[in-house]
């Protein structure tokens, strides 16, 4: 198993966190981590964990199979609509991510969410499982517990 991209979240980890960057000049946090600060133009940004819990800031459901570069391995026949949202983390930064929930009646702006790292696709050549990051409603975990 490997993350879809190194450096997006802490891995391997029991409780993965998103990795962003913080500008040492103005303190602004962004995701994914980047070398330069888009807010102040500072050149000194440090990579740091930016959290695994937040609240849903906005959302939608992707109801048609996207064209490439979408690369989930799904076909028109196997495609399942997926939720997409921005989740506001403690610093105030809002991270866009797929949601584990795709039922609109279960999604409400302001609801607590938590990060989940889970299989996204299997590499057809190597057979390796590629991991993506998702946000899940916090209550799902309580139900499971």
């Amino acid at each position: 198993m490997r993350p879809i991209r190194e450096g997006l979240f802490t891995w391997p980890a029991e409780r993965p966190e998103l990795l962003g960057s913080r500008c040492t000049d103005c303190g602004e946090v962004t995701f994914p981590a980047q070398a330069d600060c888009r807010r102040c133009g500072g050149r000194d940004c440090r990579v740091e964990p930016i959290g695994h819990r937040g609240t849903l800031w906005s959302w939608t459901v992707q109801r048609f199979l996207p064209k490439p570069p979408y690369a989930s391995g799904e076909t028109e026949e196997t495609f399942r609509p997926y939720g997409v949202g921005y989740v506001e983390l403690p610093s105030g930064v809002k991270v866009e991510a797929r949601l584990t929930e795709n039922r609109p009646e279960r999604l409400v702006i302001g609801m607590p969410m938590r990060l989940v790292v889970a299989p996204f696709r299997t590499d057809p050549e190597s057979g390796e499982v590629i991991l993506g990051f998702y946000f899940a409603p916090e209550e799902d975990e309580e139900e499971a517990a």
Partner: peptide
Amino acid sequence: EDWYGELGLMLTTQ
């Protein structure tokens, strides 16, 4: 980066 498109987040409709 490519992952953003691969995960299905790069759609203007969204």
